[in-house]
């Protein structure tokens, strides 16, 4: 009984989502001011032919710095996890 109820709720939820999503235009966003600006001015302002790289490394360069820092921190975490234990040292949570 609970399974049937759960399935019905799930079906209703995703059916509703699909019904609402059918009307959305695909590949034609409503607000295109930012995209148009980048496509028109990226080459002249950054001197790079690849607009995607111009956005990732120039207009949104700070974002990429954060991404690089995340990778650095992840490597630090893995290094701490797999480090060699000293003589007589044990894991604390054993």
């Amino acid at each position: 009984m609970r399974n049937v109820l759960f399935s019905a709720i799930l079906l209703l939820f995703f059916g509703g989502l699909t019904y609402l999503a059918v009307d959305l235009p695909f590949g034609a966003p409503r607000a295109t001011d930012m995209d148009d600006y980048f496509i028109r001015n990226a080459q002249a302002q950054t001197g790079a032919n690849n607009v995607v790289t111009a956005i990732v490394f120039d207009f949104r360069g700070f974002d990429t710095l954060g991404e690089a820092t995340v990778l650095f921190t992840a490597v630090l975490g893995v290094g701490m996890m797999f480090r060699k234990l000293k003589e007589g040292e044990e894991y604390e949570n054993d």
Binding site: T46, A48, G61, L71
Partner: peptide, 17 residues
């Protein structure tokens, strides 16, 4: 030989990854 800062940053991120 264009792009200014972008090739430098690309190279930095490349060897970091």
């Amino acid at each position: 030989y264009t792009g200014g800062l972008i090739p430098l940053l690309n190279f930095g991120v490349g060897i970091e990854v």
